[in-house]
Design a protein around this nucleic acid. Structure first.
Length: 413
RNA sequence: GCCCCCAUGGUGUAGCGGUCAGCACGCGAGCCUUUCACGCUCGUAGGGAGAGUUCGAGUCUCUCUGGGGGUACCA
C-alpha cells in the first residue's frame, strides 16, 4: 500500500504488570518498521483499566524500552486522559444508532445464552437511556462481513453475524479497549497497526467502530505471530519466564536480547543471524514476517548473548561483568579483577555466571564442596598427599602461569 | 460450542513451481589444547496426512488431522 505520508506505527502496552518479552518483541517490530520506513514510532499508555493499571508498571515498560534502545517519537499519549474523546465518540455512535444502552447483568446474559452464543442483543430496541448503571453496546450489523487486510497474513473475513454486540463503555462510564483504541489511533494518525496475533479476532470490531464513526482510510494491519512456550502456548506470566528486565538482571546484553527477539518471526536473510541493529533496520520488511508462532528459546538466547559477549573487547567485558562480581564477593580487588576478568570471557554465556568462576579469588574463607570432596579426595588415600605437595610447591612460587606450569610438571614426575 | 489463525529437522528460520531442501541453536564425533572453555571440521535430523492443478509442488487449490488464539463491564 502506497501512502504519501510517512508511516506512523505505535506500541500501546497496558501497564498492568511487568514488561513482557512478548511486548518487547512487538515494540521492537514496530520500531524496526518505523525506522526502516522513515516513519514515527509512537507510544500510548493504555491505562483504561483503572483497577489493574499502575504507573509503576509503566515505568518498568519505559525502562525496558530504553534498555533495548527503542527510543520513541513524540509525547506518550496517556489513554486515561483521553476519556472525554472516547465518550464523545460513544455518544456519536449512540446518536447515530450504532450503539445502545444495556442493563443486562452478566448473570442474565449467561442465563439466556444459547448454543454458540454470547450476548443476544436483548436491549437493542428497548430504548434505554443513559445511566451510570448501564453499559453502552455496539450494534453489530446482522448482515455482511468484515474483512481484515493484513500485510503478514493476507486477509481474514469475519461474518458480522458471528460477532456479538460488544460493550464499548462500561457501567460507570469507563471506555473499553477497542473503542479507545480506535479513537486514539485516529487521534495519533496511526497508519500501521502492528500487534500480536491475539488481537486479530478483535480487529473486525475495531473496523466496525471505525466505519460507524465515519473514519476512512483504515490503517494497515500486521498481526505478529505469537511467542509461545515449549508447550506451544502463548507465553504466560504465571508459567513462563517472561519478564524482560529479569533477563537484564541475569546479565543478558540489550543488543543480544534485541537481536534474538528480532529473530522470532523474522530473519535478516543471507543465512545471517547475528547482525547489528543497523542491518536489521536496513532489511526489515513487514511482508517478510512469518505467520507461525515462535518458541521463545532461552537456550538460543544464551547462545546469542555469548556471541555478543565474545565480540566485546576485554575491557568492555570486564566493565560489563564487574557489577555482577562486586555484588557477589565480600572483598573486591579491582587490580586482581582486571587481570582475571578476561579469563571468564569465553567461558560464560551470561554475565551472572562470571562470579561463579571468579569469586574464589576474592575471599579468605574456603568453602568445601562436600560432594566433590567425598567423591574425590576422601576416596583416594593418595589425594591428600598430592594436594599437600602441590600446596607446598606453589607456596614459594610467583603466581604466574609459566612457573606454576613448570612446578606442576615436576610434581607429576 | 462458535469465530479466526497457523503447519519445513527437537528449536528458530531460508526458499517464493524445477535446489543434492540452505543456515543457525541443540545434540553426537573428531581436531586444537596441561584442564575447562573458545575456535575449527564432520555428522545427526525436516516440508502433518490425503487428493487435485501442472511436464514438474515444501512452494498453488481443496479436504482431513494436529496445534494455537479469540469468544470479558481485561488489554
Amino acid at each position: 500500500m502506497v501512502r504519501a505520508v510517512p508511516p506512523r506505527a505505535r506500541f500501546c502496552p497496558s501497564p498492568t504488570g511487568p514488561f513482557h518479552v512478548g511486548g518487547a518483541r512487538t515494540a521492537l517490530f514496530n520500531w524496526l518498521f518505523a525506522r526502516r520506513e522513515g516513519g514515527a514510532f509512537l507510544l500510548r499508555n493504555e491505562d483504561t483499566d483503572p483497577v489493574r493499571s499502575s504507573d509503576v508498571w509503566l515505568e518498568g515498560i519505559l525502562d525496558g524500552l530504553r534498555w533495548l534502545g527503542l527510543e520513541w517519537d513524540e509525547e506518550i499519549v496517556r489513554q486515561s486522559e483521553r476519556r472525554d474523546a472516547h465518550l464523545e465518540a460513544a455518544n456519536r455512535l449512540l446518536d447515530a444508532g450504532h450503539a445502545y444502552w444495556c442493563d443486562c447483568t452478566p448473570e442474565a446474559i449467561e442465563a439466556r445464552k444459547g448454543p454458540g452464543g454470547g450476548y443476544d442483543g436483548f436491549c437493542r430496541d428497548r430504548g434505554l437511556g443513559p445511566s451510570d448503571l448501564h453499559v453502552v453496546r455496539f450494534r453489530v450489523p446482522d448482515e455482511g462481513s468484515t474483512t481484515v487486510v493484513d500485510v503478514i497474513r493476507d486477509s481474514a473475513t469475519f461474518e458480522n453475524a458471528t460477532i456479538d454486540d460488544f460493550v464499548i463503555v462500561r457501567r460507570g462510564g469507563a471506555p473499553m479497549f477497542v473503542l479507545a483504541n480506535v479513537v486514539d489511533d485516529d487521534f495519533q494518525r496511526v497508519t500501521h497497526v502492528i500487534r500480536g496475533e491475539e488481537h486479530l479476532s478483535t480487529t473486525p470490531k475495531y473496523l466496525l467502530i471505525r466505519h460507524a464513526l465515519g473514519l476512512t482510510e483504515d490503517p494497515v494491519f500486521a498481526h505478529l505471530p505469537l511467542l509461545v512456550n515449549e508447550k506451544r502456548q502463548k507465553l504466560s506470566k504465571r508459567r513462563d519466564k517472561v519478564q524482560l528486565l529479569q533477563y537484564r538482571d541475569e546479565g543478558y546484553l540489550p543488543e543480544a536480547m534485541r537481536n534474538y527477539l528480532a529473530l522470532l518471526g523474522w530473519s535478516p536473510g543471507n543465512d545471517e543471524e547475528i547482525v547489528p541493529v543497523e542491518t536489521m533496520v536496513e532489511r526489515f520488511r513487514l511482508e517478510d514476517v512469518s505467520r507461525a508462532p515462535a518458541f521463545f528459546d532461552e537456550q538460543k538466547l544464551r547462545y546469542v548473548n555469548a556471541e555478543y559477549l565474545r565480540a566485546m573487547s576485554e575491557d568492555e567485558f570486564a566493565e560489563a561483568a564487574r557489577p555482577f562480581v562486586e555484588a557477589k564477593v565480600a572483598r573486591f580487588d579491582p587490580e586482581l579483577y582486571a587481570q582475571v576478568a578476561p579469563l571468564a570471557q569465553t567461558r560464560v554465556q551470561i554475565l551472572s555466571e562470571v562470579p561463579d568462576l571468579l569469586a574464589f579469588l576474592f575471599t579468605d574463607t574456603v568453602e568445601i564442596d562436600e560432594a566433590a570432596w567425598a567423591k574425590g579426595v576422601a576416596k583416594n588415600e593418595w589425594s591428600a598427599d598430592v594436594l599437600g605437595e602441590a600446596a607446598g610447591a606453589f607456596a614459594e612460587l610467583p603466581w604466574e602461569a609459566e612457573a606454576l606450569h613448570a612446578a606442576t610438571l615436576e610434581l607429576c614426575e
